[in-house]
Design a protein around this nucleic acid. Sequence first.
DNA 1: AAATACTTTGCAGTGCCTGCAATGTTTGCG
DNA 2: CGCAAACATTGCAGGCACTGCAAAGTATTT
Lengths: 214, 214
Amino acid sequence: MVDGGGSGLRQRRKLQTKREIARAALDLVLARGLADVTVEDIAAAAGVSARTFFNYFTSKRSAVVPGPEPLSQDVIERFVADQETPVLDGLFGLIKSHLAEWPDVRQQMQCAHVLVTTYPELMSVLHERVAEFERVLVDAVARRLDAPEGDRRPRVAAALVGALVKASFMGRADEGDDPLDDLNACEAALRSLLIGSCSEGSPGHRPAQRKSPE
Amino acid sequence: MVDGGGSGLRQRRKLQTKREIARAALDLVLARGLADVTVEDIAAAAGVSARTFFNYFTSKRSAVVPGPEPLSQDVIERFVADQETPVLDGLFGLIKSHLAEWPDVRQQMQCAHVLVTTYPELMSVLHERVAEFERVLVDAVARRLDAPEGDRRPRVAAALVGALVKASFMGRADEGDDPLDDLNACEAALRSLLIGSCSEGSPGHRPAQRKSPE
DNA sequence: AAATACTTTGCAGTGCCTGCAATGTTTGCG
DNA sequence: CGCAAACATTGCAGGCACTGCAAAGTATTT
């Protein structure tokens, strides 16, 4: 309902109110605490009815945590087309491009971090968001690798990147830290961990397909 | 309330009823669907009051998805003590040991998979469970590496393993598949992805600590 | 201006989940 | 055993998230 199709003006108006609701939700929660803010409060602050709130957000929690900018098609296509750099490196680069493209994403991440550490219940929203993100990545990797149906690499690659993002998210120390620094630090940590367990396959090494219990 | 401290008999009795509630919840949901089962139904089927249900489970959803056996201290200590094999390999081995030790965990995973694919809302429970799991792993890795406070490797390593478990979980094709096979396939996929992006550090390579913006 | 599509809203209802206080049951101790 | 203290279960009352439905309002097309 909230997006897709429409006369463009209608469309913008809806995005506008969605932002207003989200902003109201965030402000109120930061001011009074998650438990002491009802959906009615948020709706009232945003100037809509409580019922309308649920036309825009599926839950109170999801309204509070800022939704991330979607990956731009441009960045994705560049990743898919680039057969040069290794897949994982390409994915990391993709994320960094994204952060570079929308600077306010970093602010949102810091905000989300505060929220999640204050109200652990919001973690589920974050997991969902990352999962959404990963779905896009799975698709991109599959296209880039021209992967067959059962190939697990897209999912694994996307999950790995998602895990790294979450780890960088959870592991931050100062609030002032730039998420990009965090991400780089985590990537470095990953690489240092990989040394030694890299090109020495323990079970098997076949790149694609599924199990082989024949 | 439900665990920790007690005369041992009380303790067992509580575990018993917890199992009964969980079983009732699972049975009912599989039979009638998640939305068509109320907490009262579950409580009644388990022979307790609805109020008691919430003494054992924090939510209806968390009662439905089977909770995993905790990692045995034994397996953990073995991992921590083994300075020989690389960390990540050790972690994979740890998981496999766990699966080998409790065969019914595999059954639970298959069950959870059915549930999650049928009712995506249950995904959050699964995320939570894996996160719990990861916390244990973070601790173990930190001890094994004797990692200082800000070291990101424990978190990254744990997140990576968690991601792999989730990927193997989500990527399964046939219901009949053995989760262990899935996990091995995912590990193979990971290794194949790492070829090429392994020992060629892109930004920096320092193993531990934090950023360095001085 | 009228018909049409879309959005907002009110209303009523279901059911999750919580705190509190009372009741029942185990356990430990004399 | 008998008593007291700890603990578990339960009922009750209530708040609030969330949903479906139908009416009312508002933009869009002809």
